[in-house]
Simulated scan of single mutants.
Amino acid sequence: MKPIPTNVHGLLDYTTGALFIASPWLLGFSSNDAARRVAVGTGIAVLVLSAFTDYEAGLSQRIPMTTHLRIDTINGLLVTASPWLFGFSKRISWPHVTFGLLEFGAGTLTGCRPKRNA
């Protein structure tokens, strides 16, 4: 059994998605185009994926939870590596590494079945 239930994962999704969108301005890296685009794009992707996932927090419930978790895991790895992939690691990297590792952790530590489907 995985320690994060899907209802908690949903709350985390919407919270981290919004925070990642706001992070360039909150954390002072909005002037770096690549870092800002990764943060805002990832935040939007997290919110859209969440809205369409079949779990307690989903609005449309079209994407299976297992698919959502796979996307979270892969996305987490990509966001973690993004400062080096897109060349902004000398300017800023810790927000992307932190959010990426949290996304990866959420993807690997969340159960696959929403309570209403259990």
Rank of each mutant, 00 (worst) to 15 (best):
T110Q: 06
P3N: 09
P83N: 04
A34T: 02
N117V: 13
R62V: 09
I21P: 04
M65F: 07
L78P: 09
Y14G: 08
S30N: 12
P64K: 11
L77P: 05
H68V: 05
R91A: 15
A18S: 15
E56G: 12
W94V: 08
R70K: 13
I44F: 12
G58C: 02
P64G: 10
R62G: 12
Y14R: 13
W94R: 13
A51P: 03
L47E: 01
G10H: 00
S82T: 03
F86P: 05
L101F: 07
V79D: 01
V79I: 15
I4S: 04
G28R: 02
G43I: 01
A81C: 11
R62E: 11
N7K: 13
G58M: 00
T66W: 12
F99K: 02
P3R: 12
A39Y: 04
P114D: 11
F99P: 00
Y14C: 06
V38N: 01
R37D: 14
E103F: 04
L47P: 00
F20Y: 09
G10V: 00
F52R: 00
N32S: 11
A106H: 05
L27S: 07
E56R: 11
D72F: 07
A39Q: 05
S89G: 12
S60D: 05
L85D: 04
W84C: 12
L101K: 02
E56M: 08
R36E: 10
S89W: 10
F52S: 00
K115Y: 13
V40Y: 06
T108L: 15
R113G: 07
